[in-house]
């Protein structure tokens, strides 16, 4: 193995890693936000709207991310949606993650004991107050482990963005390996970067979880 090529490609790889983190972070945040909206619609909207949203969930979950990206990037211009690679990738990642996040939130909300909602109704709280003060805080806490888990899965989905020429890490690694034929070295570095990212997320996630569940979980 020969790692000297990294002197030449190092900066490009780091830049690629930066883009990977950017795509992942924004895609996760936006995907979660959209997923939360979907979960609330599923819980409160009239049934026709729920059906439409359910169809969206089925379609996005039932098709490969790669295909969704192609449709968005190459099909988008046909309906006037002309996006650069990076914004298209971000939008794609947001859409791809949203139904999974929605399902996580949905089960998180279901984990909130119904009695605690009834107690709020019994003293005359509005449904909006109940969502803000009871359902969201408690539902989010019970969603947390699954949210962190799926965010970690999403880190690795970012490599698919290279297909539509988003200049993230996979894209840079591909370029480097086709120019130098150092496939193994390049991909090992890619693996190392991802491992670092995932390890960081899961550590931060665990710490965060421990902090906000301090009063909610029985310590033995």
């Amino acid at each position: 193995m020969d790692f000297s090529i990294f002197q030449q490609y190092g900066p490009a790889l780091l830049k690629g890693f930066g883009n990977t983190i950017l795509c992942w972070a924004l895609g996760t945040v936006f995907g979660m936000a959209l997923g939360l909206v979907i979960a609330l619609i599923q819980r409160y909207a009239p049934k026709y709207i729920r059906w439409i949203v359910q169809a969206y969930i089925e379609v996005i979950r039932g098709t490969p991310f790669l295909v969704q990206l192609f449709v968005l990037y190459y099909g988008g211009p046909l309906i006037g949606l002309r996006l650069d690679a990076l914004p298209a990738g971000l939008l794609g990642l947001t859409i791809y993650g949203s139904p999974y996040f929605a399902e996580i939130f949905r089960s998180g909300f279901r984990a909130v004991p119904h009695g605690q909602i009834e107690a709020a109704r019994a003293i005359g709280m509005t449904e909006l107050s109940i969502v803000r003060r009871i359902l969201l805080p408690l539902g989010l806490v019970s969603s947390l482990p699954a949210l962190i888990n799926f965010s970690i899965i999403l880190t690795k989905e970012t490599v698919i963005l290279s297909i539509i020429t988003v200049p993230e890490l996979m894209y840079q690694v591909n370029r480097m390996s086709t120019e130098t034929f150092r496939f193994l070295e390049a991909n090992l570095v890619l693996a190392l970067f991802f491992w670092l990212l995932v390890e960081t997320i899961s550590r931060v996630g665990r710490r965060f979880e421990a902090r906000i569940t301090k009063h909610l979980i029985e310590r033995t």
């Binding site: 107690a119 003293i123 005359g124 009063h215 909610l216």
Partner: peptide, 24 residues
């Protein structure tokens, strides 16, 4: 209406078997 129902519930207190305190 929901508003009227909430209005009436304001003057009725309820205590449940499972307490139903908000744990957070």
């Amino acid at each position: 209406s929901g508003r009227k129902l909430r209005e009436m519930r304001r003057s009725i207190g309820m205590v449940f078997q499972q307490f139903n305190l908000w744990p957070h």
